[in-house]
């Protein structure tokens, strides 16, 4: 999967016990498109992104990336996926550089990629610090660096602006703009202005359903 993929959800539902997180969602994100998912807390945005990432199985319906079920992607195709979750997905106790080096090793990337990623998110001078002392915004920067480390062509970002200061937001704007058209992007956000800046299309979720 070297070019940006197409993502398709067909009649997709997800239930956690008695709670229905997503109801019969049908949605296509076209190759190279940036789509913003807007909606209040609990509307199903994060669940939808986890389904596309293959981290969660749909209770009903299908989630496909270029025609392949998201939970059955080949290893190489998983390598084209970048997932920025609502958690920072880093190990406390390791430094910023060590966190990225583990992920770079798993993606078989060389060490210079780690230094470049740290510089991109403004953490070049904090690479040797353990992330236990990082603020939420700095951890978010590290999470962005980790997500972009392998230059994914399918980018899933769940509330990517969380904790970022003005400089951090500018960095994120720049990063997303540079990928526009080259990657298929799904953004889940509350921030209408952020969605308007980056999205080619906006889909609104409420109660697990597409409402607009």
């Amino acid at each position: 999967m070297t070019e940006a993929p197409t993502v398709a959800l067909r009649g997709c539902s997800k239930r956690f016990g008695e709670r229905i997180a997503l109801r019969r969602v049908t949605l296509t994100v076209h190759r190279g498109e940036t789509l913003a998912l807007l909606g209040p807390n609990g509307s199903g945005k994060s669940t939808l992104l986890r389904l596309v990432a293959g981290l969660s199985w749909p209770t009903a319906g299908d989630v496909e990336i270029d025609g392949v079920a998201a939970t059955r992607l080949a290893r190489a195709s998983r390598g084209a996926l970048g997932y920025l979750g609502h958690q920072t997905q880093a190990w406390r106790g390791l430094t910023a550089r060590e966190n990225l080096t583990v992920m770079a090793d798993l993606h078989r990337l060389d060490a210079p990629v780690v230094a470049a990623a740290l510089a991109t998110v403004g953490l070049a001078d904090r690479g040797e610090d353990r992330i236990d002392g990082f603020s939420r915004g700095m951890r978010q920067r590290l999470a962005i660096a980790r997500t972009l480390l392998h230059d994914p062509t399918l980018l899933l970002a769940d509330e990517p602006t969380t904790g970022l200061d003005t400089d951090g937001l500018a960095m994120l704007d720049d990063v997303l703009e540079r990928r526009r058209g080259d990657a298929t992007v799904l953004l889940a956000t509350h921030d209408e202005a952020f969605a308007a800046r980056h999205a080619d299309r906006v889909v609104r979720l409420a109660g697990g359903e597409i409402v607009a």
Binding site: A53, G54, L55, R75, A76, R78, G79, L81, Y83, G85, Q87, T88, Q89, A90, W91, R92, G93, M103, L106, H107, R108, R139, R146
Partner: peptide, 18 residues
């Protein structure tokens, strides 16, 4: 425990590894 603390296991699960 450390992998669940901040959700790092998710990043490992979608990495291109067996």
């Amino acid at each position: 425990a450390a992998d669940h603390e901040d959700g790092a296991l998710d990043a490992v699960l979608i990495a291109p590894i067996d």
